[in-house]
């Protein structure tokens, strides 16, 4: 490695990491936490047994999941940030990004959570109900704690996916990691080096998350005797 290459690495890496700390990581964390809350609400509404006018609400949530899973994330970002101002709805890039990522990850995760809830045997519901618990108590005290274990691997997929998807925020003027890499590459004419550095930082972040996932999986499976 020539000394000038090494210079580029040492001068650009701190900038890329700064962008990760200022944009990529907070954008991911905020959107994922909000997305999970939205996903849980969506899953519960879609699994609810209520009839009558409530079915319209259930239909709306179905429509939301359908819409956000059936259109590209990049297009969703553009509609929210560049499109909605035509209707007089304007967001800052940050807010537009958080709204879009939250809605997108919420749609996918709601299906994960719905499947995890459905995977818990009916006998668990029956046992808890016959003890006099309300449906809400059964859901929060008996079903969801078990569903967490089932949903952990696919939710980790969504989380890791979101880390990388935040690079799309570059397209709505957010100067996150990818944009920083792009800017330095334009100045130094070293696209291979710069984009590799950007990739490396994503790799490190996602590796940490992968390790975290395996710890969480062990912890949530502590009551399951045999793990293959």
């Amino acid at each position: 490695m020539s000394s000038s290459t090494w210079e580029i690495v040492t001068s650009s890496l701190p900038q890329i990491i700064t962008a990760a700390v200022k944009y990529t990581i907070p954008l991911t964390l905020i959107s994922f936490v909000l997305g999970l809350i939205l996903a849980l609400i969506t899953a519960m509404v879609r699994l609810s047994l209520m009839r009558g006018p409530f079915q319209i609400v259930r239909g709306l949530f179905w429509g939301y999941v359908w819409l956000f899973r059936s259109t590209p994330l990049l297009v969703q970002l553009f509609i929210v940030f560049f499109g909605l101002p035509n209707l007089g709805i304007e967001f800052s890039p940050w807010i537009a990004a958080i709204i879009t990522f939250t809605l997108n990850v919420g749609a996918y995760s709601s299906e994960t959570i719905r499947a995890a809830i459905l995977s818990i045997p009916n006998g668990q519901w029956e046992a808890a109900l016959t003890l006099g618990m309300t449906r809400r108590q059964v859901l929060f005290r008996i079903i969801l704690p078990q569903a967490v274990r089932v949903s952990l691997p696919p939710l980790s997929n969504s989380f890791i996916g979101l880390v990388k998807d935040t690079s799309l925020a570059s397209s709505i003027t957010i100067v996150e990691m990818f944009t920083v890499g792009q800017q330095i590459s334009a100045k130094t004419y070293e696209p291979l080096l710069l984009y590799s550095l950007v990739a490396l930082v994503y790799l490190v972040i996602c590796t940490v998350l992968t390790i975290l996932q395996s710890y969480l999986e062990k912890w949530t499976s502590r009551y399951v005797p045999t793990q293959h």
Binding site: E126, A127, A128, G132, M133, R141, Y223
Partner: peptide
């Protein structure tokens, strides 16, 4: 339901709770 207890063929214990917590769950929360 609070006045009737049920024992199932397939036990249906709550796997994520210890044996003791299985027994105290409903008395505490119901």
């Amino acid at each position: 339901r609070r006045q009737t207890g049920m024992v199932f063929q397939s036990f249906n214990l709550f796997p994520h709770l210890t044996v003791l917590k299985n027994v105290t769950e409903a008395p505490i929360h119901v």
